[in-house]
């Protein structure tokens, strides 16, 4: 058992033991290394200093503000102002110069493209893809096939106001009718129209396809938006149907689904989230991806 009365000393006689003894096993009472202890004391002193200079201790109605008077909220305002000053001259130019002139000035163009690329990665790539290549229902922005127009101004308007984004009153709107769901066309008519749509871009159609009926239905129901020959109409965001670029896909089943459900894709209006130089930079970035008009 423990031997409390006398302190045992280890054979080298450097430190004593704690006095505990478990079946003959004793525990040396080796003190903590001095460097460790002093580091520990220093952290305590550091903490005291911290209390004095930074906001620390809550009181009855407020808290100790610290002699530095530092607050994280003031700091971030300062940091953001610093950033603004850093980018200031360029941003100011982007803000005032017209979109066309930004593209004509190499210095502004490279700044706008860099800013646009960064903003695109955060805000746009989850829908349009990291390389703006698009996904089913989300258009590819690299090609020259535009739903709403590929000029700088058209792209800028699309970004500002969004597409079918009700929270913005100037948003681009139009809805393809739900021909199937609303019972405007019968299933066999939808099938015929789908075959006709495929024929517009030279895709093979089914053997028993009634292209005559399809054409008639197309002229009556679809041409107003998609054009007599499926050339599309950017005023209402109706895609070209006579080319190889598809928003949803060329398979007959996909086309039937489109005609059945109608509707249209939505894109947020960015004027509510991003500032005007960023949106201009984005417009320039998208325009210079390859398909700008």
């Amino acid at each position: 058992m423990t031997n409390q009365t006398e302190t045992n000393v280890d054979p080298r006689k450097i430190v004593g033991t704690t006095g505990h003894d478990w079946d003959g096993i004793e525990e040396l009472n080796t003190p903590l290394p001095r460097w460790w202890l002093w580091t520990f004391y220093l952290t305590i002193i550091w903490a005291l200093g911290y209390w004095v200079v930074y906001p620390a201790i809550p009181l009855a109605t407020s808290f100790t503000k610290g002699v530095f008077g530092w607050t994280s909220r003031e700091q971030v305002v300062k940091d953001l102002e610093g950033l603004k000053n850093l980018r200031g001259p360029m941003t100011a130019k982007i803000e005032t110069v017209s979109l066309q002139d930004i593209e004509k000035t190499p210095e502004l163009l490279s700044f706008a493209r860099a800013q646009g690329a960064a903003a695109f990665a955060v805000n746009c790539s989850p829908c349009h893809g990291a390389g703006a290549q698009g996904f089913k229902g989300y258009p590819n922005l690299n090609d020259d096939d535009w739903l709403w127009g590929g000029s700088l101004d058209a792209i800028h308007t699309t970004l500002q106001n969004g597409i079918r984004w009700d929270a913005n009153k100037d948003t681009r709107t139009s809805m393809m009718p739900a021909f199937g769901k609303e019972g405007l066309l019968k299933p066999n008519e939808i099938s015929a129209a789908a075959d006709y749509v495929r024929s517009l871009s030279g895709l093979p159609t089914e053997k028993d396809a009634d292209l005559k009926l399809g054409q008639k239905l197309f002229t009556e129901n679809c041409a107003a938006c998609h054009g007599e020959n499926g050339e599309g109409n950017q005023d209402v965001g109706a895609p070209k149907l006579n080319d190889k670029v598809w928003l949803y896909g060329p398979e007959k089943a996909t086309i039937i689904e489109r005609i059945t459900l109608g509707g249209g894709g939505q894109m947020p209006a960015w004027s509510q989230r991003l500032d005007s130089p960023t949106i201009k930079s984005l417009a320039v970035y998208v325009h210079t991806l390859g398909g700008g008009q």
């Binding site: 989850p126 829908c127 893809g129 089913k136 894109m267 947020p268 509510q272 989230r273």
Partner: peptide, 20 residues
């Protein structure tokens, strides 16, 4: 307001359908 309802639907069903 950053995404459309449809995007959330696609993304919740299978995130890789929109963000590979």
């Amino acid at each position: 307001g950053k995404y459309s309802d449809d995007w959330h639907r696609d993304h919740l069903r299978n995130p890789r359908s929109v963000v590979p």
